[in-house]
Amino acid sequence: MSGPNTDYDPVEVTPLKPEEVEAARDAALAAIAAAADLDELKQVRIEHTGDRSPLALANREIGALPPAARKEAGQRIGQARGAVNQALAARQEVLEAEHEQRMLVEETVDVTLPTDRVPTGARHPLTTGSELIADIFVAMGWEVAEGPVIEAEWLNFDALNLGPDHPARTMQDTFWTDPPEDHLVLRTHTSPVQARTMLSRTPPIYVVCPGRVFRTDEYDATHSPVFHQVEGLAVDEGITMAHLKGTLDHFAAQMFGEGISTRFRPSYFPFTEPSAEVDLVCFVCRGAGKLDGATCRTCRGEGWIEWGGCGVVNPRVLTACGVDAERYTGFAFGMGIDRTLMFRHGIEDLRALFEGDVRFTTAFGTEL
């Protein structure tokens, strides 16, 4: 029986030649030494240690060698790659130290310098925005009504014609408090304030209700589990949709400038009948849909922007709140204060209103 064949054909693979490996190693070391900052070093790392680097490609060629030749080639490549990695680590440490030192010099602030400047404070735009809206309606002879944020289930749902099986009652939309038998929720709208007002006073009623509301929405650029609404309620003899339209047109003009009007699109809400979605004439292109020959980015060429909801108060709601539905009618409307401010000031990310960055609020000063 013959023994194992230890002879091999010394196949030459160019990337594995000693001179080629040394050249790749030396090129990598030179590039590392020449890197002037961390960004340049990152690029060097990719070029000389990445999957497509010369040493990485050479390492892949080891498999093409006969078994007896692989050990020597593997040691040669391993030593070269080790030298490169050590040089990278050393250079990284030096450049990080230089970066930190440079930051200390460039960002130094002499806190002992005398100053007579006192930073000007700023009120949060949600606060000033809510007050502006309240002032608009107070000037029209309305009153501002407020209520608790932890509300009775009956006032938040039943009194507003939202039956026991309505999907808004589920955990997908509503924050319920413990224990469940207390039947308390974090209010999902400011409509309970309207219900409380009708229960506590006799028409005529003209109230506007701004405040925080809570729903189980995701927190992103256009949604938040905590946001702000303003709702209005008018209950009197002879109230019609025409009164509602005139009120909202005046509100829109005061918020966005003269010439801004509203339109109604048929919709459905349990607490109003008939109901409508309120659209606002685009205050940027003034309803044209185009601006400087291009499609208006604010309204996406529609000429209108969705603003809120409204309608004539459902007689069931009036009756539930102790108002004579045979004698009185009313209208109600609601829209987001946060959304209104985003429209008015070009705020692109809703989260900017809630993250407490003083640089954001300072831009608004003390008044809108």
Rank of each mutant, 00 (worst) to 15 (best):
E258W: 13
G259Y: 11
T262L: 08
T262Q: 06
T262P: 00
F264N: 06
R265N: 10
P266D: 01
S267C: 00
S267W: 03
Y268S: 01
P270D: 05
F271N: 01
F271C: 05
F271V: 02
P274G: 00
P274H: 00
S275Q: 06
A276R: 04
A276N: 03
A276I: 09
E277M: 04
E277K: 02
V278S: 00
V278A: 05
D279I: 01
D279M: 05
D279E: 02
L280H: 10
L280M: 14
L280N: 03
V281R: 15
V281P: 00
V281S: 12
C282P: 14
F283V: 01
F283R: 15
C285H: 09
R286C: 07
R286G: 10
R286E: 09
G289R: 02
G289M: 03
D292Q: 12
G293N: 08
T295N: 14
C296H: 14
C296S: 15
R297F: 05
R297C: 00
R297Q: 05
T298Y: 08
T298Q: 13
T298R: 14
T298E: 12
C299E: 15
R300A: 11
R300V: 04
E302F: 01
W304S: 09
E306L: 01
G309T: 02
G309N: 06
G309R: 00
G309D: 03
V312F: 06
